[in-house]
Design a protein around this nucleic acid. Structure first.
Length: 267
DNA sequence: CGCTAGTCCTGTCTGC
DNA sequence: TGCAGACAGGACTAGC
């Protein structure tokens, strides 16, 4: 569910927690732990040094120990004052800190998970370039699409190609670049590759500026909705008018994912 | 090796 | 009101 802009919004919102110390930990469902190279309870007494993001992963560092979170489709990770007891269902992990706040991981579908590890490298090893990194250039996008027969939409969702895009922003970026989602990746010209790279950066930055997109589940680090859904051009707007040409937007399925586009503006 | 389809889950909405 | 079926911001993997 949360894509790069949502995870980045959560990270920024929770950054104030840096410096706080873990007072207690409650792991309500052991099976959300994807890796336990140390015992989760060892976090008690540890100081939260920093919060970072890589792709859709959130990384909390406590000295030599890391807590890596991925929120899957329905996951939330947010702060709640300690005096406000959490009564919600599907809260699998609860970290109480000495600064009067607790961090909660809630995830009804449980497609997300947590890594209790001292070495986060392998968890992130298969991720492609960060979209805001210099290495993610028009030239990279052109080169990396050569000999790839899959639909460009499918490739954008491949985290090894570029880290952080999900279904919303893949559709939005392709609209902004005026490229049909069903196009074979290797059919993109160098000019189109450059346009798509720029569109990805622009769309993600705009979404971060709007604190992410909330259609159903997503909430930020304080359990509040994002705003970018008011600015989306194609995602979830099937049958509505294209804001550019006024014709009807369409929906199709590509790589098993619902895909939204303008059949007139996107070539 | 690249690619597709199936799988993991729960909640919500639609149509009969 | 009940119920079946479709669908949902993701990502791994068996099998072709």
């Amino acid at each position: 569910m949360p894509e790069l802009p949502e995870v980045e919004t959560i990270r920024r919102g929770l950054d104030f927690m840096a410096g706080a110390r873990v007072a207690s930990l409650q792991l309500n469902r052991r099976d959300i732990a994807r890796e336990t190279s140390y015992e989760p309870r060892e976090l008690v007494g540890q100081r939260l040094d920093s919060l970072n993001r890589r792709g859709k992963y959130l990384l909390l560092q406590f000295g030599e120990r890391f807590l890596v979170m991925h929120l899957g489709m329905s996951g939330r990770f947010y702060a709640l004052p300690v005096e406000e007891a959490c009564t919600e269902a599907h809260v699998h992990l609860q970290l109480t800190f000495d600064n009067g706040w607790q961090l909660l991981y809630k995830d009804p579908r449980r497609f997300g998970g947590a890594w209790f590890t001292c070495e986060p490298g392998p968890v992130l090893a298969r991720l492609g370039p960060e979209p805001f990194d210099r290495s993610f250039s028009g030239a990279y996008l052109f080169r990396a699409t050569r000999n790839r027969k899959v639909a460009i939409k499918t490739l954008l969702l491949n985290q090894a190609f570029v880290a952080g895009l999900g279904n919303i922003y893949a559709d939005e970026a392709l609209f902004a670049a005026r490229i049909k989602p069903s196009r074979r990746a290797d059919s993109l010209t160098a000019r189109e590759a450059r346009r798509l790279q720029q569109a990805i950066v622009d769309v993600l930055q705009a979404a971060i500026a709007s604190c992410g997109t909330t259609f159903r589940d997503y909430r930020d680090g304080f359990n509040q909705s994002g705003q970018f859904q008011e600015l989306v051009q194609v995602y979830g707007r099937t049958g509505e008018k294209c804001r550019h040409c006024s014709k009807g937007l369409e929906r199709t399925v590509i790589g098993g994912r619902s895909t939204h586009y303008c059949p007139f503006c996107q070539k």
